[in-house]
């Protein structure tokens, strides 16, 4: 039986060597290192597939942009920026 007994120090060295070879973290005391938060797959991309037709469209923004376009077409868009003060006065009079 004595021949089969392995010294703890040897076992420790073996574990260290194993983690070196397989590029895993050497953590003999099983401390909580938070590695699982880095190791876990990202869940976001899969989450975005629940509603295919809604997907990543921002409805409110789309509606707003559409409304602005409609207003521009009816000549109700925002006024153009003026280059000088005199221009702005002239434009104000016209209205």
């Amino acid at each position: 039986m004595d021949a089969l007994r392995v010294l703890p120090s040897k076992l420790k060295a073996l574990t260290r060597l194993r983690s070196e070879i397989f590029q895993t973290a050497y953590n003999p005391r099983n401390l909580r290192t938070g590695a699982k938060y880095l190791r876990a797959n990202l869940r976001g991309p899969a989450m975005m597939q629940q509603y295919p037709e809604l997907g990543i469209v921002n409805e409110y923004e789309e509606q707003r942009v559409q409304d602005v376009e409609d207003k521009k077409r009816r000549g109700k868009g925002t006024p153009k920026k003026t280059k000088s003060k005199a221009d702005s006065r002239r434009l104000a009079k016209k209205r």
Partner: peptide, 30 residues
């Protein structure tokens, strides 16, 4: 409720990496 869920899904996707980084630091007992 669906719009809220879409909002949540977008929020999770956009902030996932930053949250994971903070989680890693906060849960790291070393």
């Amino acid at each position: 409720r669906v719009m809220r869920d879409v909002k949540a899904r977008q929020g999770v996707t956009q902030n996932e990496i930053a949250r994971r980084a903070y989680l890693y630091v906060a849960r790291n007992t070393t």
